[in-house]
Structure formats: structure tokens, C-alpha cells
């Protein structure tokens, strides 16, 4: 089912620029009505659509290096849209949309079996073990464009799809069908003070992301940019989130390697 002007929204995160400040997480929580818990330190059950991980190169002091890695939903395309989570959902609650390339999650349809959580290799999906809770008065600042989730359903990053919806309806009112690059940007992209996140349509040559990571046939279909990599590339999940790093150990950390395999030279 090929759409003529199909879009493929993707993200490029420059880890050389990321300072690990967490602004993307805060912007995401505020934008997407992510609830709080009194003790949210167990990160396995804490709900956060965007999470910044802290990597180290494992070398002893003083040669230790750190790198922060922001992780939204990878919006895997897999092969023909069969991303890991979409293939296992028995409720059609999660779906791959060929016209935007975004993996949707419909909370009213989800019945909480959590197959998708088991299938997702990136820990992107989270289960609502409790009804959502916000500190007093903060309910007044909830975003009306994003539905809140009830206990017992799975949720995940949507690439701020509501921003695409509202931008599209504005464009439609003005008689346009297509959006400009800056009309649809995710909350994390706009919030990042270091400008580390770039967002746009990977299929549109006019968009910055397309230029940054466009596949190169001479490079095995992977981006020409030697700094570019994707998380767990070998699984074939075909994610739409790319990372850039000039450090080899960071790029290697993005995938699983057998101990003896390849060069062990962290540079």
C-alpha cells in the first residue's frame, strides 16, 4: 500500500551536542501529559516517553568518558511497516501508518497485555500500573490536544502527532495540503537548548534530516555520514531515529557485539 506522497518522519540526534540536561524529557512530559509518581526513581516502571541515558566508555579514571543518549520512540519501520511492536499487538491498538511513518498507539483500544513491551528492543513502551496522578494544580496545565492515559494501558512517544494534526488542520484551513518543515516539529526538538535534535521528513530532500542521513547506495544503503548510526541496527528494526557521534565507542555502544568480534579499540 504505497502512498504517492508518503512521508517518513524521522529524527537525527547529535550526541556530540547533547549535554544531558534533560530539557527534552521535561518538554515531552509537559507536552504529552505524562504523569508523575511520588517515587519515580524505578526507571523500569516510571513512565517517560523520552529518556536520556548515560553511557560510559568503561575505562578507569582518568580516561573515563561519558555520553548522554536521548531515546524517544524509534518509530521502527521494520520491513514494510512490520515493526516489532505492531506485529505482536493482538488488539490493533498499535499500528504503522505508511503515510507518515509513525507508529501509533491508541490507548482506548489497548487492553494492556504488554506484548508490545516485550517485543520492543528499546524499552520505549511503558505500562500504566496506576491511574495518572499530577501534583495539585498541575492538572490545569494539561495539554488538551493529547488524551490522558488510564491505568492498565501501554503508552509511548508519538513524535508529537497532535502537533502534526493541528498543523495540518491549520494548513487545510489555508487551502494547503502540505506542511512546511518548521510547522511540524516535536516538543523535544524545539526545547533542546543545544540544538542536538533535528526532526523532519526523511523522504523530503528539502528537509534537514534527509540531507543529514540520506542512505548512500555505495555505503550499503546506510548514511554516508560516518558519524551516523542507529540503535541495534543488526536487529533489522529499521528505526527512523538516527544518532550522530564522532566517538567510536559511542557508535559501538549503539549495538550489541560479541566480545571477540571486530576491533575492540575504543577510540
Amino acid at each position: 500500500m504505497k502512498h504517492e506522497k508518503a512521508k517518513k518522519f524521522g529524527m537525527v540526534i547529535d550526541l556530540d551536542k547533547c549535554t544531558g540536561c534533560g530539557t527534552c524529557m521535561v518538554a515531552c512530559m509537559a507536552e504529552n501529559n505524562v504523569p508523575f509518581r511520588e517515587d519515580d526513581t524505578d526507571k523500569l516502571i516510571s513512565v517517560a516517553w523520552m529518556r536520556v541515558y548515560r553511557l560510559t566508555n568503561g575505562k578507569p579514571f582518568p580516561h573515563t568518558e561519558e555520553c548522554f543518549l536521548p531515546r524517544p520512540c524509534m518509530q521502527c519501520e521494520g520491513h514494510d511497516g512490520h515493526s516489532p511492536c505492531v506485529s505482536v499487538c493482538p488488539a490493533t491498538a498499535t499500528d504503522y501508518d505508511m503515510s507518515t511513518g509513525i507508529v501509533s498507539q491508541i490507548y482506548t483500544r489497548c487492553f494492556g497485555c504488554r506484548y508490545c513491551m516485550a517485543a520492543c528492543p528499546y524499552h520505549v513502551r511503558q505500562f500504566n500500573w496506576w491511574d495518572p496522578l499530577w501534583p495539585e494544580k498541575m492538572t490545569e496545565s494539561l495539554n488538551p490536544d493529547v488524551s490522558v492515559r488510564m491505568r492498565g494501558v501501554v503508552e509511548k512517544c508519538s513524535f508529537c502527532i497532535h502537533r502534526y494534526q493541528t498543523a495540518t488542520q491549520k494548513a487545510n484551513l489555508e487551502g494547503r495540503r502540505e506542511l512546511e518543515e518548521d510547522e511540524y516539529q516535536t516538543a523535544c526538538t524545539q526545547a533542546c537548548p543545544a540544538g542536538a535534535i533535528t526532526f523532519g521528513d526523511l523522504n523530503n530532500p528539502g528537509h534537514a534530516v534527509h540531507q543529514m542521513v540520506k542512505p548512500d547506495p555505495n555505503h550499503g544503503g546506510r548514511p554516508k555520514n560516518p558519524k551516523a548510526f542507529r540503535l541495534l541496527e543488526r536487529l533489522g528494526t529499521n528505526p527512523k531515529v538516527y544518532y550522530l557521534s564522532s566517538r567510536k565507542w559511542v557508535r559501538r555502544a549503539g549495538d550489541n557485539y560479541i566480545r571477540q568480534e571486530g576491533s575492540q579499540n575504543h577510540s
Binding site: 508518503a6 490493533t92 499500528d95 504503522y96 501508518d97 505508511m98 493529547v146 488524551s147 494534526q165
Partner: peptide, 18 residues
């Protein structure tokens, strides 16, 4: 209209859901 869903071969969910 937007018949681009992989699961249902009908409309994508995020066309009308948020």
C-alpha cells in the same frame, strides 16, 4: 482518505485519534 495502515489496510489510527 489516508488508507495507509499496515495492520488494517484501512485508515491509519493517528489520522483521527490522538
Amino acid at each position: 482518505v489516508n488508507q495507509a495502515s499496515v495492520q488494517t489496510h484501512k485508515g491509519g489510527c493517528f489520522v483521527c485519534h490522538k
